[in-house]
Design a protein around this nucleic acid. Structure first.
Lengths: 126, 126
DNA sequence: AGTTGTACCATTAGTACAAATGGTACATTT
DNA sequence: AAATGTACCATTTGTACTAATGGTACAACT
């Protein structure tokens, strides 16, 4: 499995990582059960910070593309192939687009939408 | 009708204006058909910039609280009282809260929600 | 002992936007 | 001529977030 990171790309590093690992799963370069390099090791190979790789792994595990088994390492999830095609973000964008579209048609200002968005995001996290 | 603007308030100046005019409508201090001070005049009285007052008037007209009749001036909308209680922003916050709540329950990161939000907002404005 | 994922502490640089200000100009009515 | 709402040009200040970096520490396994 070859992973290439382009620092000059506008796509965030952790996002590039996620994309390439998903791609590798879809192309059968890595199969369910296969072990993935450890966070520290991959970070070292790609000359990235541990946190950057850890962030990618965290997101990949949430999407059930990989499975972390504590001290035993990280492995490709059994349903990785199916879950790599399911783009959670695409669903969020679509759903959010519908909602915001309705606002705009009602004459709500983009500025007001942004403010409301900020309120909603801050109220629940505190 | 007395309007008080507090520069030190965290509430934006134009928002204070909107709130106070709506309040004046609800309290019958100003009634449908009444003339409102012109943008320039009100800005002068309150020591605000023309644009700030114009912004408030623009939003108030969108909400059908006031009615601008070009060169003849600005007047209180016939349905002002009803429209002053309808808070468009509250509806936006509620609806947006439901949508975002669903995202969060699906494990979507706040960060990802923000990114998706940014994508949606930029798609149509450009 | 060494490695695993993970959780805290923190800072830096960059981006994006809100809010407000300022000036100029227009068409149209009184 | 004066006033109306409106539209465009622009800048400044402050905030808030992202992305990435760095360091330290933990419990549990090999």
């Amino acid at each position: 499995m070859e992973i290439t990171i382009d620092i000059d790309d506008s796509v965030p590093l952790f996002a590039q990582l996620i994309g390439q690992i998903k791609q590798a799963v879809l192309c059968d370069e890595i199969c369910p059960g296969d072990a993935l390099p450890s966070i520290r090791q991959l970070a070292n190979d790609l000359e990235l910070n541990n946190k950057t790789v850890a962030k990618a792994y965290r997101l990949l595990e949430r999407d059930s593309v990989i499975q972390t088994k504590g001290y035993r390492g990280t492995f490709v999830h059994p349903d990785a192939k199916a879950n790599s095609t399911v783009d959670l973000n695409a669903w969020v964008v679509t759903k959010l687009g519908e909602t915001i579209g309705a606002f705009r048609e009602s004459g709500v200002t983009d500025s007001e939408i942004r403010i409301a968005f900020g309120d909603v995001m801050n109220r629940r996290s505190s």
